[in-house]
Structure formats: structure tokens, C-alpha cells
Amino acid sequence: MSCNTSVIRVQASSVEQTQRVPVHLMPCEIEHNGTARVSQYLTATTKDCKHEKTVSFRGRGLRGQEISCPQGYTGLVLKEINKLGSDQEDRTVRVSSVFDKLTYWNLETPPNSDDTVVMAMDWPELAEAIHGPVED
């Protein structure tokens, strides 16, 4: 039951100093939230080819591509701090890390411009058309 009076504050003041991290979007759901030895297993075995990267995850071949955040946009990873009990109270999140680009991975299929996450990056431009001010 959501409460419509509480707000979620975003502690965004330190964005500039926040560290940039590599970000990967995987084509599978990993039922875990916590540490993962990404650099030891994924980064160390990734191969860079002409237009794509390849790697195996749990014995399955993945093909990936690095894409940038849309112009004028930055990727933020938000983390909740001081989680309080009730839903009625205001909550706070901070920016734990920042990214300008991300690598997304397809299961077996080569990355291409029809991939949904690639097209999603067009959304801000469409949003500007829908929400931008209309001339008088």
C-alpha cells in the first residue's frame, strides 16, 4: 500500500566526485544482491572483437556491446540509506556510483541496433518532443 505523502529524497550533491564503475546488463536473472567477482570472472575472460565483445557466463555464450548514455544524461546507481520502518516516512537515497556507458549482453544473438536497450536510449529525445515547451 503506497503512501502518497512521503517523498524519497535523492542525495545528489556529490555526483561529480562519485566513482565511475563498469556496468553490465545481463540477459538472465541472477537471484542475488551482493558482491560478485565481476572483474575476476567476467572482465578477465571477455574478448573484444570488431563490433562486439564475447564472453561466457555459466557456460553460455554471450555477445555484448558497449553503449553510451544519451547525450546530456548520466547513469546513476542509487542506494537507500537509513532505511526506516514505516512507509509513511520520508526516505533517502544516495548516488553510490555513476556511469556514462554500459555494456549489455545478448544470449547468443549478436548485438544490433534493434536491441531494445539500444532503442530505449532514444527515449529522452522522444520525451523532449512530448514534453518540451510549445512555442506561443
Binding site: V21, H24, L25, E29, E31, H32, V38
Partner: peptide, 19 residues
């Protein structure tokens, strides 16, 4: 979908756009 962020894994694979 899930995320790898740095040396962590995040089960929720959503990407939020704030526009």
C-alpha cells in the same frame, strides 16, 4: 535481466529513465 555494477550483482534488471 540483472545488473553487474562494479563488483556487485543486482537482481533487479530495471533501468529507470528520469526525463
Amino acid at each position: 535481466h540483472s545488473w553487474f555494477v562494479g563488483q556487485t550483482v543486482q537482481r533487479d534488471g530495471r533501468l529507470l529513465f528520469v526525463t
